[in-house]
Simulated scan of single mutants.
Amino acid sequence: MKKTLFICAVFFMTAASTFAQNLNSYKYVVVPNRFEFLKESNQYQLNELTKFLFEKYNFKAFFNDEEISEEFGSNRCSMLYADVIDNSGLFSTKLQLILRDCNNKQVFVSEEGTSKIKEFKKAYHEALREVFESVEALNYAYVKETIPEVVEQLPEKNEVAVAVANEEKMQVVDSEKPAAKEVPSKKETAPLNSGKKVASAGKTNFEYEGNSFYLLKSNEGFKFYQEGMAEPFAALIASGREGNFIYSSIGSQGTAYFGKEGNLVVEFLNSDKTSVVSKKYVLKD
């Protein structure tokens, strides 16, 4: 059990570090004056509390109906757009925070905050403050240079992916450099090589428990879809370690990687946060 909990801790330390790097490149957060599950603007003072908590953890936040001054600039893509969703059940209030970029892509999903208080306002406030523990853990600090650094790394990854996928190019290298004969053995033993081939494809199909899924490339890594669904149910965000990704869905966060046969392995904590759930999505030809 201790070993399992240690592995889980490593997963989420890595996830928190990656999300921090992603969020540090954004300067502002836009908070709506009404969340969808509320009947009126700033009901229960929940929107004001959301703005306050963002500012508490070093973000510059403003409401979407505020007049944007020159201080905020005109670049929408320097801003994050906040949303709080209500996952409440019969006996408890549950809230979750989602941050999206200017292209409506999720860049952060918090852990759920819960409360068993019966009074709505107190319950929502308690749950929201627990939600922001995930934000506090990021240790957010705006860094202007973050985005250029990520962009500079992408061509290098693409070159590696093309080099592995292009068999003709490998044959030329083999003929010119005898030392490169070691490449086939690396290809057989390295568990991430098939992942590079997946990374070079536009759409990659998988199967899990009789259902069909597919990956589409995105700026952050991949979007994960179930066949027949218009919206992705999860995202694979590049972690900075080649072939490894942060797995993020509304219900869970964890890690993902490609096995040597091209299968996608996703690992995350179960709902009780006591053990790791591992799912293997089998690559389809």
Rank of each mutant, 00 (worst) to 15 (best):
L138Q: 05
P232L: 08
P32E: 05
V277A: 00
I250H: 10
V162H: 11
E133R: 15
I85G: 02
E168V: 09
K51L: 13
F72C: 01
V143C: 03
L46N: 10
K181H: 07
K2S: 04
E133T: 14
T274Y: 00
G228L: 07
E55I: 02
K279E: 15
E220R: 10
C102W: 11
D86I: 02
F222L: 12
G254Q: 05
D272F: 11
L154D: 14
N22L: 10
E149P: 00
S185N: 04
D86P: 02
K260M: 01
P155A: 10
T18A: 11
S194L: 01
E267H: 02
E220Q: 15
K3N: 08
K27Y: 04
K181D: 09
I237Q: 11
I98Y: 09
E242V: 08
Y57S: 02
D86M: 03
K197V: 14
E136Y: 09
E112T: 13
F54V: 02
V10E: 06
E167D: 08
E159D: 15
K280G: 01
T204Y: 06
G202I: 05
I147A: 13
L154P: 01
P155S: 09
V276A: 03
S41Q: 15
K122N: 14
E231V: 14
C102D: 10
K3E: 12
G210A: 04
A230T: 11
F224C: 03
N104C: 00
G259L: 12
G221A: 09
M79D: 04
Y124M: 11
V277F: 01
V30W: 07
G202E: 11
P178H: 09
I7L: 12
V29M: 04
A61Y: 02
G251W: 07
L269K: 09
V151C: 04
K60C: 03
M79E: 10
K181I: 08
I147C: 03
F258S: 07
T50S: 13
N270E: 08
E227W: 02
F108Y: 08
Y225H: 12
E55R: 11
V198C: 12
M229H: 09
V164T: 05
A199I: 03
S249Q: 05
R241F: 12
F63N: 02
T14V: 15
E70A: 10
K203Y: 10
S278G: 01
D272P: 00
K60Y: 04
V150C: 03
T18C: 13
K2E: 13
G202M: 05
R34P: 00
S25D: 06
P184H: 02
E70S: 14
S194K: 07
L264H: 01
N103F: 12
Q171C: 03
Q43P: 09
G89A: 07
V277M: 07
